[in-house]
Design a protein around this nucleic acid. Structure first.
Length: 756
DNA sequence: TGACTGTGGGTTTTT
DNA sequence: CCCACAGTCA
């Protein structure tokens, strides 16, 4: 028997060695779920199955990568040939091969959420519907859930219940918008996130050239991680692949109903319950021993989840010892909450010798990160914020990507609309509307419509010039590699010169972001490492880089380094830290006011809280504030109901309001405006004594002075320009990369060290 | 016809 | 607070 099997407990080993037939693994938090999955795959390979016949589906690129690394530790490089990836990326890869069978170009664009909403927005506008009544977000989520339930527009129109709901909500035209939206995406050669699932289902369902058989034969072993987070459509695809006459039903799903936190995007726990009915002879294994957390934490978690009505019975236990009781921080304000959490981090670092990477701050909404960033920066504690707007969603980055997308797929209307007048080249709203109308009349793409539309001579000339430029990109895309072409496009389009002309701090950071993107593309071109999956991506063309960018999230960034982790509770799933701070435990925030309308909503928030606290190994601290700034306004909220669900015996006794601490409250500043993407939010390690730092009034900052900045260290003011609030100082900070920074004096905290 | 400025309204989580 | 739009000016 192989070594790795000895690292498992009895239940885990059973789950690993029963490789034939359907298996359900119910895995509590910290119960070694990933270990079971990876060893199971390794075991399948050891049993002589070629790795490329194994398909492992996850929800994040990160967990796929981690899984593959761990498989490699057991079976070596063979792990690279396992098809492991997210639902979306694996399906996108299949669709690239098969797209033409369902009427899409294989170079189809993937629309991200922004793109989808923009399409919906223009449809609403064209139909002359009220923007207030037809709220884009509401429509988008309605369409998304229809797709995720396998209801195409035609069927939607026939479903009395849906139509009735829409008319009650006074939005009877949704089914029309939906149909137009689908047509518009198709015309643009684009698939949105849901399409990657939806279109794959229809490919398998319609089965042109018997593709279904091809993939059934290809994937003999299927594994699904986080099964509780799959939606109806995902499960339908899984069944297409595995459940048929003569199938071996080699499927293993792993999940925890108590950690189902994605109902808002269609996930349904029903899938776990249905799984038992759909696959006869199912073997179920329950992993109940928690290896992660101490008993106080596990007990509290069990008590909290006990308040939910529906769940699979299981008893999670730990023998790591009682450990430390849970601490609760009561703060008067969000600012005080930030300070006290930062104080506690300092305390834990010195008393328990934790390093930064042992610590995480978890919040319900990404917007909460700012205040913690502010204090961690003050205390010189390196941190990294995950989630929020990803790098690829920043305007300037999307602008350049827009050109690249257009070079690959000229039908891509969202890309076209984005770049046709950026940088400004005098092609205004009216002209674009005319092109769009022409495209609509003739059911052709806007790119084609540009040849037929009737315009005044001036506008015509500008359009021609634009088209010529893009054609040059297309031509070069056959000879240049991704980097050269991207750099060429960045210059030719005028993006670089436009950004260079903007000398504000924000402008500078935008330019740096574009440079970072180019650097990233260069890295892609030069990187000779093997990518995930069986088909080695030795394709360094722009297309192969650009096509999966929408699927790339900033969770995927490599993250070695010693920093405190800041992320949303959703993003934290699957992770663990010695010390965890779950912050903002207030009614209307956690649970979110959006979820408070329904009991199911509350139960999902409770599961989310359960996920959050079970990330902790040794220390768990929970905090809330009596008042906080939200959307620029003060708001007061009572402590979260979830706090009362924690048994008293698991709480530190001092669960009483501590006195507000002496430190003055600060409002967060805009952070990370200067510095490039990777470095921006991780703090430079400069030893500045925070207590001694006293910013000088900005009016006193003059050329030639030596100044001190908390993040950048010592520097020399080289130039001050602008007047009043708009004063900008150019300062040389020799201790950092990119030493020249332009800081808005209104915001910059600088301490004058000496006059020159 | 396009560029710019002020106002009003929404407001969660993610592939 | 941030974004999208409407209304105004060149």
């Amino acid at each position: 028997m192989q070594d790795y099997l000895n690292e498992l407990n009895d239940v885990q080993r059973d789950a690993v060695t029963n490789i034939k037939g359907p298996v359900l693994v119910v895995a509590g938090p910290g119960s070694g779920k990933t270990r079971v999955l990876t060893y199971r795959i390794a075991n399948i390979i050891e049993n002589g199955v070629p790795p490329w016949e194994i398909l492992a589906l996850t929800f994040t690129n990160k967990s796929a990568r981690e899984m593959k690394e761990r498989i490699a530790k057991v079976v070596g490089s063979r792990a690279n040939n396992v098809w492991a990836g997210t639902f979306h990326s694996i399906f996108a890869r299949i669709l690239r091969v098969e797209a033409e069978k369902i009427g899409y170009p294989s170079s189809f664009t993937i629309y991200d959420t922004q793109d989808s909403k923009s399409v919906i927005s223009s449809i609403i506008k064209e139909m002359n519907l009220s923007r207030d009544r037809y709220n884009v977000n509401a429509i988008a989520s309605r369409i998304s859930s229809a797709k995720s339930s396998l209801i195409p527009p035609k069927l939607y129109t026939q479903m009395k219940e849906l139509i009735q709901q829409d008319s009650i909500n006074k939005r009877p035209k949704i089914h029309v918008i939906y149909a137009k939206y689908m047509a518009r995406c198709k015309r643009a050669g684009a698939m949105d996130f849901d399409d990657l699932l939806f279109q794959l289902y229809y490919l398998l369902h319609k089965n042109p050239d018997n593709v279904l058989d091809k993939y059934r034969k290809k994937f003999k072993y299927l594994l699904v991680d986080e099964f509780q987070d799959t939606n109806y459509l995902q499960y339908a695809i899984i069944k297409k692949l595995v459940k048929y006459d003569g199938s071996d039903n080699n499927i293993c799903v792993v999940g925890d109903d108590a950690q189902s936190i994605y109902a808002f995007r269609g996930a349904t726990v029903e899938n776990i319950l249905d799984f038992e009915k759909d696959f006869k002879g199912l073997k179920t294994f329950k992993l109940e021993q928690n290896y992660r957390s101490t008993t106080h934490i596990v007990q509290a978690a069990n008590a909290i989840i006990g308040h939910n009505t529906k769940q699979i019975k299981k008893k999670i236990w730990s023998h790591k010892g009682d450990g430390t009781k849970i601490r609760v921080i009561k703060a008067m304000s969000d600012s005080e909450e930030g300070k006290r959490v930062a104080d506690t981090i300092v305390e834990q670092k010195t008393r328990s010798h934790f390093s930064n990477s042992d610590i995480a701050i978890l919040y319900r909404t990404n917007a909460q990160s700012r205040i913690f960033e502010e204090y961690l920066r003050r205390y010189n504690i390196p941190y990294k914020v995950f989630g929020g707007t990803s790098f690829y969603q920043r305007k300037e980055v999307k602008d350049l990507i827009g050109y690249l997308r257009l070079a690959i797929n000229q039908q891509d209307e969202e890309a076209l609309k984005r770049v046709i007048n950026y940088p400004k080249r005098g092609i205004g709203k009216t002209t674009v509307e005319k092109i769009s109308a022409k495209a609509g009349e003739n059911d052709i793409s806007m790119w084609e419509a540009m040849d037929y539309v009737e315009l005044p001579a001036g506008a015509m000339k500008k359009i021609k010039a634009f088209k010529t430029m893009i054609k040059a990109f297309i031509d070069k895309s056959t000879t240049m590699d991704a980097y050269d072409l991207a750099a060429y496009a960045a210059r030719q389009s005028g993006i670089i010169s436009t950004l260079k002309a903007d000398t504000s701090v924000e402008g500078l950071s935008r330019l740096e972001n574009v440079t970072s993107l180019l650097d990233g593309i260069k890295e892609f071109v030069e990187n000779d490492e093997v990518e995930e999956g069986v088909e080695l991506t030795d394709d360094k063309s722009l297309a192969s880089y650009i096509q999966n960018i929408a699927l790339h999230t900033n969770q995927d960034e490599e993250e070695d380094g010693n920093f405190v982790t800041l992320m949303s509770t959703h993003s934290a799933k699957g992770l663990e830290f010695k010390s965890v701070f779950v912050v903002g435990l207030e009614e209307n925030l956690f649970p979110s006011f959006m979820a408070m309308k329904s009991p199911q909503g509350i139960e999902e928030e409770r599961r989310l809280f359960y996920v959050a606290i079970t990330r902790a190994e040794e220390y768990l601290t929970i905090s809330f504030a009596n008042s906080r700034y939200r959307h620029g306004k003060h708001s007061n909220n009572s402590p979260s109901r979830f706090l009362n669900e924690i048994p008293l015996e698991n709480l530190e006794s001092s669960f009483s309001m501590s006195k507000p601490t002496s430190g003055t409250a600060v409002r967060p500043q805009r952070s990370g405006v200067a510095g490039n993407f990777k470095k921006a939010r991780t703090q430079a390690k400069l030893s500045i004594n925070v207590a001694d730092f006293k910013p000088s009034p900005s009016a006193l900052i003059k050329e030639g002075q030596k100044v001190l900045h908390l993040k950048f260290g010592e520097g020399v003011v080289e130039q001050v320009d602008g007047r009043g609030d708009k004063k900008v100082a150019t300062i040389n900070f020799p201790q950092i990369d990119n030493p020249k920074r332009r800081l808005m004096l209104k915001f910059a905290k600088l301490q004058i060290m000496s006059e020159e």
